[in-house]
Amino acid sequence: MMSAWRTTAVVVCFLAWVLAVASGCSLVGQPDVAAWDQKARQAVTDAASEVATARLAVETARDDRTWSSYTTVVVAQAEEAMGTVQDDVSRLQVPPGRAQDADDLEALLDAASSAVQDARQHAVAGEHDDRDLLDRLDRVGERLTRAETRW
């Protein structure tokens, strides 16, 4: 019967679509060098974004341009996102020949994470006028920017 055939075709197309969407979302990366490099680059970019966010939030707070709960929320969310970036990287399977790079990346992200954490502690305590903190965020930000071109 014509319509049965048509219904089957529609259902098959729909299932194929669902499958395609599902596989697109859950694809597990192979441990090859190119994929690792791409993920590393992404992690560094994301980390740089979080550090810059924390820096901008602290800077505006120092200039008395935000109120304390706003700063706290923005920096705390940056810290949380930083944690996600670290988690994602730590779960990557390191391909052969990238062991040193993986260590470097981890160290860099640790530095960034602790700087953001520091910023959050300052924000909660209401200490926005801290030149050292801004310098630290600046330095980590520059290291991240340089690292973006490495992989």
């Binding site: 970019t45 505006t60 341009r65 935000t66 706003y70 969310q77």
Partner: peptide, 28 residues
Amino acid sequence: VLMPEGIAVETLGQVGLPVAVALGKVGL
């Protein structure tokens, strides 16, 4: 404000930051 700093927007707080930079507390 955000693009030169390399900030990718993921929170509502980040959306408001440029206004804080430009106008301060009241504007924000």
